[in-house]
Design a protein around this nucleic acid. Structure first.
Length: 272
DNA sequence: CGAACCTCCTGCGGGC
DNA sequence: TGCCCGCAGGAGGTTC
């Protein structure tokens, strides 16, 4: 369940090894992902990787012919670098051999991930990217922006902050965490929140994601030898997954309910 | 447009 | 120990 910080950590881990490398070979071992792996992926042999960036939870890889790879880790995906000789693990669906004697492997048991080859052009015009909201850590993510999005939304605030058109990168775990941090009950209709509370929520989303990236960065020492999953689960979560356990602030039992098909956790005393 | 619901898939944990 | 069942979840798609 890679959340944005995990994607960012993955990007930082692989970037130094991919940037500037030439693609020697591409092996697609399983093309049935959320969308079929692009058939033109094989045509990328011989191209150089000229840049890597992240947008929302997507990793965008720029190639020397100005085409791009658009990668999403879905629920269970990971990217990892290893020696080309390493035995394939179950669910290693893609292997990209590079000129630097390393191999990039895309591993994804549940196959909710995506690995697309976009034709030369601006990747942000792709339909998966062209209607995304602001990055939570960018200056564009302000209380005013959130307030504007909330005005017309009567759905639970938790559902709304998980809407990627409102703000990207707030997954199920961090939605609960950010709401706890801002003292807001997840069920509250977004339209009912006052300006000061929205401001608090904006800051909480930023803080929760920021501190998690820092954790990922410290846990992950050498991406080359890691198993591909940054140790971000080791972080202490305040409410997520803690139903029935005492709130770390007031001791009240953490509640759990399903909201918008997703399990949600909150403290009934600290969050109103 | 908004809201509710559906879907893809496999691993894991609970119950017996 | 083994088996069955149901749940978990990112996010686009569908329907009303």
């Amino acid at each position: 369940m890679p959340e944005l910080p995990e994607v960012e950590t993955t990007l930082r881990g692989i970037q130094p090894h991919l940037q500037g490398a030439t693609i020697r070979e591409i092996a697609v071992r399983e093309q049935r992902l959320r969308e079929p792996v692009s058939p033109t992926l094989a045509d990328c042999t011989g191209l150089r990787i000229t840049g890597l960036k992240r947008r929302a939870k997507y990793i965008i890889c720029e190639l020397s012919d100005h085409s791009h790879w658009l990668i999403h880790l879905g629920m269970s995906g990971s990217l990892r670098l290893c020696k080309p000789s390493e035995v394939f693990k179950k669910h290693d669906h893609l292997a990209v051999t590079l000129s630097n004697r390393l191999q990039l492997r895309f591993h994804d048991p549940r196959r909710f991930g995506i690995f697309l080859h976009l034709p030369a052009g601006d990747p942000t015009e792709h339909k998966l990217l062209n209607s995304l909201g602001p990055e939570p850590l960018s200056p564009e993510f302000t209380p005013a922006v959130l307030a504007r999005a909330f005005r017309t939304r009567n759905a639970p605030v938790k559902t709304v902050i998980m809407d990627s058109k409102v703000v990207v990168g707030v997954g199920n775990i961090y939605a609960s965490e950010a709401l706890f941090r801002s003292g807001i009950r997840p069920q509250t209709p977004a339209s009912k929140l006052t300006k000061p509370r929205i401001a608090k929520l904006t800051a909480a989303i930023r803080t929760v994601i920021e501190s998690s990236i820092l954790q990922g960065g410290t846990t992950l020492r050498d991406f080359l030898h890691s198993d591909g999953s940054p140790g971000y689960f080791s972080q202490s979560l305040t409410v997520y997954g803690r139903a029935g356990e005492p709130c770390r602030t007031c001791g009240t039992a953490i509640q759990q309910a399903v909201l918008g098909q997703r399990s949600t956790f909150w403290c009934p005393k600290c969050q109103r």
